[in-house]
Amino acid sequence: MILDIISAVLILLGGVLSLAAALGLLRFGDLLSRMHASAKPQVLGLLVVALAIAIQFPTWATVTTLAIVISFQLVTIPVATHMVGRAGYRTKHLRRSMLYRDELAEAVDRAEARELAWERQRGTGTDHHDG
């Protein structure tokens, strides 16, 4: 019975994390912040629930299957969040006002300035760009 209660507590914890993720989805201001919120239950929530299952069925078969589930999640979640984040950054979903410092934009600016300087030097119709 005590094992059942421990499992139930762990599942409740998973529920709380999912709720926090959904609340974050509602309350955070822009796409990138919401993405931080959404990735959480997929990692820790599933870990906690897998622990609950492993407590109930402590056999090798179940534990290895759960290890597979967790490792697949650990591998695929960063991929999904990165792809969505990159798409969100590059298109207009990005709210610049929600960014305190944007070092990627600085790097892109620098690279473009270099590119323009190089192109100017080559004299490829750069007269139009002056002012």
Partner: peptide, 8 residues
Amino acid sequence: VVLASIMC
């Protein structure tokens, strides 16, 4: 998030 809730 819905999917994660379903999995939990």
